[in-house]
Simulated assay, not measured.
Amino acid sequence: MIVVMALVVTIVFVIVRVTPGDPAAVMLGPDASAADIAALRTKLGLDGSIVEQFGRYVLDLIKGDLGQSIFLGEPVTSALAQRAEPTFFLTVFSLIIATLIALPVGILSAYTRGSIFDQAATTVAMFAASVPSFWLGLLLIQFFAVRLGWFDTSGYGGPGASFADRLAHLVLPALALGLVSSALITRFTRAAMLDVLNDDYVRTARSKGMSEWRVVLKHAFKNALIPILTVIGLTAALLVSGAVVTETVFGLPGVGSLVVSAVLRRDYPVIQGALLVIAGLYVLVNFVIDMLYLAVDPRVRY
């Protein structure tokens, strides 16, 4: 995990620095003189070589400091913390929707292999996997918000909005992300179930007179959980980073919209801090999934 995060820190820092655009020039506008831009670059600490800037950045990271936002004028940690709530709940609700759809459909599709339901589920999953979440989000806004008026088109509620009102604003974006993400989980669930449904212990359980639902859910599904847990964990990590565009479409004040605005303004510390946090969550989720293998399969040992 340490090696991965070290590589992420290095790659993100270099990519951000070599991207065209100067934050000092963006802040001062097109009419600024070269002297004014140079003075602001010195003030922001951008006048040194990339090696010097990287050294200062690493030292700050060791101290737990993600830096100071160039445009917001506040620590990056505070900026991310203020935007974390919408992104967190959007990720959680999207994952719940994806899992509730994918697991039953994938299990039933594998159990009825070759049936009309199986073919329909596979076709829909392939189609859903190719649909961009932002495009699906626009369709949901057009139908449920504009035509039916059931939900707001954008936003996260006013400053005094209740928690229930804020959650209502997450229904459509969570559906957009959850429906698209369910496709991958469905396909992996079906494949994992097909691998175990014809194993000897499943036939033995049936021969003992166990009910079919108990054979499928208790014996087959439990032994197919490892690849399913893996893809659910990867989906959860992808949802955090994939929420960037979806948050922009729905006007949610989350980490995604913060990153988009930071990219447009060349706010280096915010871009680096956000990507570093997202990468850290990605690595952490994978680590948690690895630990869950111990609870699912007693044969796994570390």
Rank of each mutant, 00 (worst) to 15 (best):
L72W: 00
P75L: 03
P75M: 01
P75G: 04
V76W: 11
T77A: 13
T77E: 11
A79R: 09
A79V: 05
L80P: 13
A81T: 14
A81N: 13
F89D: 02
F89L: 13
L90N: 06
T91E: 01
I96Q: 10
A98E: 00
T99A: 11
L100V: 15
I101E: 02
A102K: 05
A102M: 08
A102H: 05
P104S: 04
G106V: 05
G106R: 05
L108C: 12
A110K: 03
Y111S: 10
T112M: 14
G114R: 04
I116A: 15
I116F: 13
D118T: 12
D118E: 10
A120I: 15
A120M: 14
A121Y: 01
T123E: 00
T123S: 15
V124I: 15
A125H: 09
A125C: 10
A128D: 01
A128W: 07
A129E: 06
V131G: 03
P132H: 06
S133G: 04
S133D: 13
F134W: 14
W135N: 04
L136R: 11
L136Y: 09
L138I: 13
L139Q: 09
Q142C: 00
Q142D: 02
F143A: 00
F143E: 01
A145H: 07
A145L: 05
V146D: 04
L148A: 06
L148D: 01
L148P: 00
L148W: 12
W150C: 06
W150A: 03
F151E: 01
T153D: 01
T153H: 02
T153G: 09
T153R: 12
Y156S: 03
G158S: 05
G158D: 06
A161G: 05
S162W: 04
F163L: 15
R166S: 10
L170G: 11
L172W: 06
A174C: 11
L177A: 07
L177E: 04
L177W: 06
G178M: 12
L179T: 11
L179E: 03
S181M: 05
F188H: 09
R190Q: 13
R190A: 05
A191G: 08
A191M: 01
A191P: 02
M193L: 11
M193I: 10
L194G: 11
D195E: 15
V196C: 09
V196G: 08
L197W: 09
N198A: 09
D199A: 14
D200F: 10
V202E: 11
V202R: 10
V202K: 09
T204P: 06
